[in-house]
């Protein structure tokens, strides 16, 4: 029985499998299908200072081996999370991370400061990479100057593990990664969705109400894997890989490319029990190939 535990710069994970923000609700949506305590952790949906209605319907388009979404950070705001959601999930025996998003630096700071007070939230994932909001979101994550500004500001108020989620919609992911590291990020997660679009030729209109949306699913996996590999070489802090992971073999590819942990996103929509299958599959691979500890394969390529 290979050891699966990972220490992610102080954040103790019982195994390297997390779930991606926006694909796992508040965890409770999946309790009929899996025992949440089996997960290394889960990341609750993008949370902002004020409630957001998100973008108009239609917000989703199926693509070959993937999907586009333009949800636009629909959520009821950080106070709702603290008052109504947190009490019901704080006792779960797994790591709960909150994905924090905002339109301005002060939004990010205020939201992160509120989450900092929650005893059972050991980390936040700073979302500077959402492609589906007009202000903020990805705009922060595509220029080094704004990455620097927002990570530095949040670092001053947030004292626990700070994971920064990077956008793939950039020319040089390594310089963005180095910037976040320099400003005090404890870990980096990547990739958020790739910006894409779809056209309905029958209506002769874009499928999505917002025209463009974020592409996810197995179609983005090779791009995600390449970027994780590049970033893992560029920084000293741990990297969390995500993008199109559908099974244990996909997850193992990311670990071998240098990710210390992975997030499962879109796959949860197809199989709500996929996360535990991936945990079991990683363990089976390690056992079958004579590895005593998952850490032996991280960055092995």
């Amino acid at each position: 029985m290979a050891k699966l535990a990972i220490n992610l710069a102080g954040l103790e994970l019982k195994n390297p499998v997390l779930t991606a923000s926006g694909t796992f609700g508040y965890g409770t949506e999946f309790q009929d299908f899996i025992d949440l305590s089996r997960l290394g952790g889960f990341i609750v949906k993008g949370t902002t200072l004020h409630p957001r209605e998100g973008n108009p319907y239609p917000r989703m388009a199926e693509t070959a081996s993937g999907m586009l979404n333009a949800v636009g950070l629909q959520n009821k705001g950080v106070d709702y999370f603290i008052d109504r959601i947190y009490p019901g999930i704080q006792g779960l025996k797994t790591n709960i991370l909150v994905n924090v998003s905002g339109s301005t630096v002060s939004d990010y700071v205020e939201t992160a400061a509120k989450i900092n007070e929650l005893e059972h939230i050991p980390a936040i994932e700073l979302n500077i990479s959402c492609p589906n909001v007009k202000e903020g979101g990805m705009a922060f994550g595509t220029r080094c100057s704004s990455v620097s500004e927002v990570v530095r500001a949040v670092r001053q108020v947030y004292r626990k593990h700070l994971m920064v989620k990077l956008s793939p919609n950039v020319t040089d992911i390594q310089e963005i990664a180095r910037t976040a590291e320099a400003e005090g990020a404890d870990s980096l997660s990547l990739i958020n969705t790739l910006m894409g679009m779809a056209v309905d030729i029958r209506k002769r209109k874009p499928v999505l109400s917002t025209v463009t949306g974020g592409l996810s699913g197995p179609c983005v996996k090779p791009v995600a894997l390449r970027m994780v590999w590049q970033v893992a070489k560029a920084v000293k802090i741990p990297v969390v890989g995500l993008g199109g992971i559908m099974n244990a073999a996909d997850a193992l590819e990311f670990l071998m490319a240098g990710a210390s942990a992975v997030q499962i996103g879109t796959a949860n929509f197809i199989d709500p029990a996929v996360t535990v299958k991936i945990i079991d599959g990683i363990e089976a691979y390690l056992d079958a190939n004579g590895f005593g500890d998952v850490r032996e394969i991280i960055g092995i390529i």
Binding site: E29, E53, P56, R59, M60, N69, N268
Partner: peptide
Amino acid sequence: MACGIGACLCCVTETQEGH
């Protein structure tokens, strides 16, 4: 829809109380 279980928030309709 994508997930069917309230996780992805893709299938929303506009109601008097929001999406």
